[in-house]
Design a protein around this nucleic acid. Structure first.
Length: 744
RNA sequence: GCACUUUUAGCUCAGUGGUAGAGCGUUACAUUGACAUUGUAAAGGCCGGAAGUUCGAUCCUUCCAAGGUGCACCA
């Protein structure tokens, strides 16, 4: 057969590498990622329904991994589909400064290369270094996001630490401060001696280790033995607590003792408290208010003093020469051998212990009393304007109540649904949120001091002598504002009015608390509304053996490598298909390769159809389908409707499988094969009907597949012969097929 | 300890109140074709175990077992 009208590139297999970059550039140049442009050009109606997604901002700590690739693929599928449905589809990209994560990464690098600490460099120089690193990291991340085919609106790109977002952060802080929801107080917090900062409860990772549990008496004449894994803290004990109903000790409750413990004078009062477990150890708890959260609570209930014996560097601040200034671990040995020598040690046993470590630095958490900033989640305040169901405008509520209510009454739905139970469980155990961090990278706390005066605003107060708080805010404070800070809040922007609340928040289940809950909190408080209608939680992408991808295992797959080797279209399909929400998935090269073959299949389907319909003009004004072809056409309509319904219902794994299955095993395997017979026959009505059907259906399947495999479909769209009057130049802004047949 | 979740073909996973599906793998045959291959077909499952609800359960309920995750405890 003569092939002179077949575009030359169709004669060789599909080559994603030479295609994807070129196509992305064409999209970017078109401006169609920006819904405003679509409206200006008459592609989208000005009063169309908005559809908004904010991209969970990747941390500027390095490069993207397959988890990011999956997240971007899912969000791009939604954005492209809704754009094709004629909605004002807006996907806002951005990055997160990720305070601790970024600073500790740069600190590590500097320490390794130059042997210097942040204190050697000083605040200003250190921040310069971090900014330079963050900028580099940002640039490579953006390049990667583009390589994934993400159709996000770059004109609206945001950074959690840029000017607009900083203004939002400061405004929110001031509002909460004025409402008394943000307070400063001394509490026992999680101190990371390695990172030299406090961290939040959910930044802690528990590691199971063996530890020794020592049972002993403070002194020979003390009546009760206590157990502890940390004898060095006992020089800070102020009480021994027993359970009120524990008859072994009732006689002693209320008595006070003065003793010398390893050279340190201590004063111990015996108290009864419900929180003590009778069955653990001796049933008596040595109370160390300064170095244990629980003990701190007990001491508050009983009006006991707090004695700090360990400092920020995990070194002893009390005791004789043998202890003072020593590391806690050394002091422990000293004290244990003293106990042994004195004959006070009754028992020494191995126990399993969950040690709290800092997620970012690996430092072992030292509970310390510190003066910090907190958000009070239980304090009542008046919400002036509210669209929250169950919380009327002007009524009193609490942040905890907001977080609970909107999920409980399904104003925000979580997919998969069972995660809301985990969410409630977390809310019920929630304590006040410590938001200050003793690091340098981040939003500096907008509070200034002068003597006893305290001032909070979005900028420094007038006058001399004001000193700004040294600390910065927890990074999740700024990411909590993400859905509306990206739209220009606190200004009353048209974007904010149009695109908020957002439609879907698509993210990993591991940040349900640290991020999703905080967004609900911040949006409920700040705007009296919800940040999003639906939360879609994806699982973790694992390797073929089911292991987490990690640098140390070297089992990670770089999405850019995937793009180079198989095309990112194939990578996207492999990540989406067969992956249910909330469930971890496995990926390996074989799976991706299968979808590369699929892209090539589509390529060859197109070649077959172009070859066999050469010179045939599609005229859809007169529909001359045979009865047989009309049945096939109805099937395509059903497909378009079903795939659309699956995307609407966030069943991406089913949607992609349906279109894949149709194209390969129905359209190619059955219909194309059958067409060969028709074309070699003599029935001209049948032949022209079939040609028309093939051309129409090819166009329709390209449209339906486009959200999933945007590059190869866009490329083929530019190749197939089309009626220019009835079709757009770029597939990205084509209408979803059979839209008028959808029932809503 | 509490909660959530998973258990379906050799592997990885979808799915549904009416005795099961995909991809990969395996086997056989065909084909150089629109296809850096593809097609046709086959083998392979008491849908973790037990009980219950139901006309009917892989699906709903309860219990049990084994994995995973979260939270708490961690004196």
């Amino acid at each position: 057969m003569e092939n002179k009208h077949i575009p030359e590139k169709l004669l060789t297999p599909y080559d994603p590498q030479s295609t994807e970059k070129r196509i992305y550039d064409a999209w970017e140049k078109s401006g169609y990622f920006n819904p405003d442009v679509c409206i200006q050009e008459g592609i989208t109606k000005a009063d169309a329904k908005p559809f908004t997604i904010v991209m969970p901002p990747p941390n500027v700590t390095g490069i993207l991994h397959m988890g990011h690739a999956m997240m971007l693929a899912i969000q791009d599928i939604m954005t492209r589909y809704h754009r094709m449905k004629g909605e004002k589809a807006l996907w806002i990209p951005g990055t997160d400064h990720a305070a601790i994560a970024t600073q500790s990464k740069v600190e590590k690098e500097i320490s390794k290369k130059e042997g210097k600490s942040r204190y050697d460099l000083g605040r200003e120089e250190m921040l310069n270094r971090i900014h330079a690193f963050a900028q580099d990291s940002h640039d490579s991340i953006i390049a990667q996001v583009k390589a994934m085919g993400a159709s996000c609106d770059w004109s609206r790109e945001a950074f959690t630490l840029d000017e607009t977002r900083t203004k939002a952060v400061y405004t929110m802080f001031k509002n909460m401060y004025d409402d008394g929801l943000i307070y400063r107080g001394t509490r026992v917090v999680n101190w990371d001696p390695k990172g030299q900062t406090t961290i939040a409860d959910d930044e802690i990772v528990y590691e199971e280790r063996k530890a020794k549990l020592y049972t002993f008496k403070y002194a020979k004449d003390f009546p009760i033995a206590i157990s502890t894994t940390r004898p060095e803290t006992k020089i800070g004990d102020v009480a021994v607590a027993v359970h009120p109903s524990d008859e072994r000790y009732t006689a002693y409750v209320g008595k006070e003792y003065d003793m010398e413990f390893c050279g340190v004078p201590i004063h111990i009062k015996i108290i009864a408290d419900e929180s003590v477990e009778k069955d653990f150890g001796t049933g008596a708890l040595g109370v160390t208010p300064a170095h244990s959260m629980i003990d701190s609570d007990i001491s508050k209930r009983h009006n006991l003093p707090s004695i700090q014996v360990i400092n920020e560097y995990a070194k002893m601040t009390l005791g004789g020469e043998n202890i003072l200034g020593k590391k806690t671990t050394e002091a422990r040995e000293t004290i244990v051998s003293w106990l042994r020598d004195e004959g006070l040690l009754e028992k020494e046993e191995e126990v399993n212990q969950n040690v709290s470590t800092a997620e970012r630095t690996g430092g072992i958490i030292e509970p310390l009393p510190k003066l910090q900033w907190f958000i009070d989640v239980n304090k009542e305040f008046v919400l002036p304007e509210s669209t929250l169901e169950g919380i009327a405008s002007g009524s009193k509520t609490t942040l905890k109540q907001i977080m609970r209510t909107v999920v409980q009454n399904k104003q925000v739905t979580i997919v998969p649904e069972y995660f809301d139970k985990t969410y409630f469980h977390w809310i019920d155990n929630l304590q006040d949120w410590c938001i200050s961090r003793q690091i340098w990278y981040g939003h500096r706390i907008p509070v200034w001091y002068k003597g006893d005066e305290i001032y909070s605003d979005i900028q420094a107060p007038e006058g001399e002598g004001w000193v700004q708080d040294e600390d910065v805010l927890d990074t999740w404070f700024s990411s909590g504002l993400w859905t509306f800070s990206t739209l220009g809040w606190p200004e009353n922007t048209p974007d904010l009015a149009t695109y908020h609340p957002t439609a879907v928040l698509e993210t990993g289940y591991e940040i349900l608390f640290s991020w999703v809950a905080r967004m609900i909190l911040m949006t409920g408080y700040g705007l009296g509304t919800i940040p999003f209608h639906t939360v879609y939680l994806h699982g973790t992408v694992r390797d073929a053996q089911g292991r987490k991808m990690s640098k140390s295992l070297g089992n990670g797959i770089d999405p850019i490598d995937v793009a180079n080797k198989f095309g990112i279209d194939a990578g996207r399909m492999a990540l989406i298909t067969g992956t249910a929400p909330g469930t971890d998935s496995r990926i390996d090269e074989n799976k991706i390769k299968g979808y590369k073959n699929f892209a090539n299949k589509l390529w060859n389907i197109t070649r077959f159809i172009i070859t066999n319909t050469e010179g045939f003009e599609v005229d859809n004004e007169k529909n001359e389908y045979t009865e047989e072809d009309q049945i096939l056409a109805d099937e395509v309509r059903t497909l378009a409707i079903e795939v659309g319904a699956d995307i609407d219902a966030l069943r991406f794994h089913l949607a992609s499988e349906k279109i894949y299955h149709y194209i390969w095993h129905r359209f190619a395997d059955v219909i194309l094969e059958e067409s060969k017979e028709i074309f070699t026959g003599t029935d001209t009505a049948k032949i022209s009907s079939r040609k028309q059907f093939l051309m129409n259906t090819l166009a329709d399947t390209l449209k339906i597949l486009h959200p999933f495999m945007p590059f190869v479909t866009e490329e083929l769209w530019s190749i197939i012969p089309r009626n220019e009057a009835n079709s757009q130049k770029l597939l990205i802004i084509e209408s979803w097929p059979f839209l008028e047949n959808h029932t809503h």
